[in-house]
Simulated scan of single mutants.
Amino acid sequence: MSLPEPDDLTSLVLRTDFGDDGSWDAVRAALDAADDHSPATYVDHPRFAEVTVRALLEEEAATAEDERIFYVFLADAATMADPSYPLLAVDLADEPGRTFRVPARWFFDVSANLSLANMDFAEFADAADGSGTFRGFDED
C-alpha cells in the first residue's frame, strides 16, 4: 500500500471514504477553487478505503528514506459529511501521527506552505483551535 509521490508543488490527498462519489467530487472542486493550479494530487483508489493513520505510518516507515512523504491529507468520512470539507492532515515525518483538520477554505494556504517547505507541519497544528481544526492564523 505504498503512497504515491505527489506531483510537483502539490500535496497528496487520499480518499479513504468511498460512500458517496458526489461528496468526493465536491471535495475536489472545493480544494481546486482557490487557484487555477490544483494544489493537490488526488488518489482515488479503493486500496486506501478506511486506511488508518497507524497503517500510513507503518507504510512510510517501511519506505526507502529518499521516497518518503512528509505529510498527507485524508478525505475521510468526516471530510465527506461536513460542508466545509475538513481534511485530516497527517504528519508522517517530524511528529509521526500528529494530526489536525483543515477545511477546504484553508487547504491552499496549508498545502502551498508545506509543499514549498515554507512552514512546518507543527506550525499549522499548533495554530489549530480547540477542536483540532486549523482556521487560519489569528492576526491579533
Rank of each mutant, 00 (worst) to 15 (best):
E67L: 15
F100D: 06
E65A: 15
F124R: 08
R28M: 11
H45N: 08
D25A: 07
T79V: 03
T79I: 04
L74F: 02
D8S: 09
D140Y: 13
W106E: 13
D91E: 05
D32K: 01
D109V: 05
F107K: 04
P86L: 01
G22V: 04
P86C: 08
A93H: 11
V90Q: 07
L74T: 00
A49Y: 00
A125E: 12
F107W: 05
D82E: 06
D44A: 01
D66K: 05
S131A: 15
D35M: 06
A122Q: 15
T10Q: 14
V13Q: 03
D94H: 09
D109N: 13
P103Q: 12
A55M: 07
E5R: 14
D94W: 09
A29G: 08
S115G: 03
E59Y: 03
E95T: 10
N118F: 06
V90M: 07
A26S: 13
A93I: 07
E123A: 07
A125N: 10
E95W: 08
L116H: 15
F100L: 11
L31G: 00
G132L: 15
E58C: 04
E60Y: 09
A112N: 06
S38Y: 01
N118V: 09
G19N: 12
L31F: 01
T63A: 06
L14E: 08
A64C: 03
T16K: 04
P103Y: 13
E58G: 11
R105F: 13
T41S: 14
A117E: 12
L88H: 00
L14D: 10
L114Y: 05
H45E: 11
E139S: 09
S23N: 02
S2W: 15
P6I: 13
D8I: 15
G130A: 13
A127T: 12
F108R: 08
L92G: 05
R68L: 14
E59L: 07
P103T: 11
A34M: 03
S11R: 04
D91C: 11
L57Y: 02
A89M: 06
T99A: 11
P6E: 08
P96Q: 12
V110S: 11
F70R: 14
R28C: 11
T79D: 09
D21W: 02
V72L: 02
S23R: 07
R105E: 14
D35Y: 01
V72F: 01
A61S: 10
L57C: 07
D94A: 15
E123N: 07
A55E: 12
A112L: 02
D32H: 02
D138I: 09
R28S: 02
V90Y: 05
L14P: 07
S115M: 08
V102L: 06
R28E: 08
S23W: 01
E58D: 11
E139F: 14
P4D: 12
F121A: 10
R101M: 04
T52Q: 03
F121C: 11
L74G: 02
L56P: 03
R68P: 01
A128Y: 10
P46E: 09
S131I: 07
S131Y: 12
N113H: 12
F18N: 09
A77E: 10
I69T: 14
W106V: 01
H37T: 04
M80I: 01
D32S: 08
